[in-house]
């Protein structure tokens, strides 16, 4: 029994270590900030290109995922609102469209129009940006302050399915904290989401 528990602890530590090693942690800089990605307006731009006066919101998302769809209205509304408030916003699709047809560039253009996205929705054509961030799910949020340091990583809020039952607006709270030059009370959260289908 002790061996089993020990092996669990070791494996957990190993997994934790590997996960920590793969992605960025709080306080770290924006990875691959100058990587140019194709936007839905057919212009290439990088994360550095969209930086705002208060900071930068990077969100890994896609079209096909039910979790994204559940949050989509909130994604559009939060991103549009805080872009106007002085945040740089960029939503990145790192999925391989051969796995999910709905994640094709054409579908992205269509979805952005339907949902009224005022922010860039770009294609990570090699999935390398997602890998550099350590992003594994959609939607997955990374919020950087004006010094480009990661101050919040995780979910949009605590209830994907029922917007009216959200108790913790993690992302909105973090955005407001950054606007007030404060550290978000909750800096890391987890949420269920669709796994990113990395391009091979």
């Amino acid at each position: 029994m002790k061996k089993i528990i020990l092996s669990l602890v070791l494996v957990s530590a190993l997994i934790g270590g590997v996960m920590a090693g793969e992605g960025i942690g709080l306080g770290e800089n924006i990875p691959m900030a100058n990587e140019k990605m194709m936007n839905i307006d057919n212009n290439k731009l990088s994360i550095a290109d969209v930086k705002g006066e208060h900071g930068t919101l990077v969100m890994f998302s896609c079209n096909h995922c039910p979790w994204v769809k559940a949050w989509e209205t909130r994604i559009a509304s939060i991103c549009n609102e805080y872009m106007e408030k002085g945040f740089g916003v960029i939503v990145i699709n790192s999925n391989d469209p051969s796995a999910y047809e709905d994640d094709s560039f054409e579908s992205m253009v269509k979805r952005a129009a339907e949902m009224g996205f005022k922010f860039p929705y770009v294609v990570d054509s090699t999935s390398e940006v997602a890998k550099a961030f350590g992003a594994s799910k959609t939607p997955e949020v990374y919020l950087f302050n004006e010094q480009d340091k990661l101050v919040y990583h995780g979910a949009i809020d605590d209830n994907a399915q029922e917007a009216d039952k959200v108790e913790n607006h993690y992302l909105i709270n973090a955005l407001n904290s950054v606007m007030s030059d404060e550290k978000p009370a909750m800096q890391e959260t987890k949420a269920l989401g669709c796994g990113i289908k990395f391009r091979s």
Binding site: A155, N159, E167, K190, L192
Partner: peptide, 18 residues
């Protein structure tokens, strides 16, 4: 119910991937 509660009830080290 809430995602984070669900995740943490199974294992706090789980990142929620399926």
């Amino acid at each position: 119910g809430k995602d984070m509660d669900f995740i943490n009830s199974l294992n706090p080290d789980w990142n929620g991937s399926l």
